[in-house]
Amino acid sequence: MSYLWAFIVGGLICVIGQLLMDTTKLAPAHVLVIFVTLGVILTALGIYQPLVDLGGAGATIPLPGFGYSLAKGVIKGVNEKGFFGVFTGGIEATAGGITAAVVFGYMMAVLFNPKTK
């Protein structure tokens, strides 16, 4: 059952992204920025958590999930460290992902070359 919900929630988030790109002049970069920011805001408003509970990876793998982790991290940071947590919480919660993106990204870029289409 968790797979089905992951599929549906993840798929629907992507459809929203597709509609944004097809019906407006937004480029992929715009859509990604909007999704991350939206993930942060929806989590802060308590709207994204139910989606994560329902969809699991379907809500955490798409980019709003990155916003979700940032927002959850920052709230946890504030709870534990007070004001300082405002600045450390977000990155602390997403440190793994960001580091992986940098390191794996660099590694693949060194190893491989782009192919002409």
Partner: peptide, 16 residues
């Protein structure tokens, strides 16, 4: 949208 739904859903399912 169909492609986006199925591929996005599939990637999420692999994640799950």
């Amino acid at each position: 949208c169909t492609w986006a739904f199925f591929v996005g859903g599939f990637i999420s399912m692999i994640g799950q």
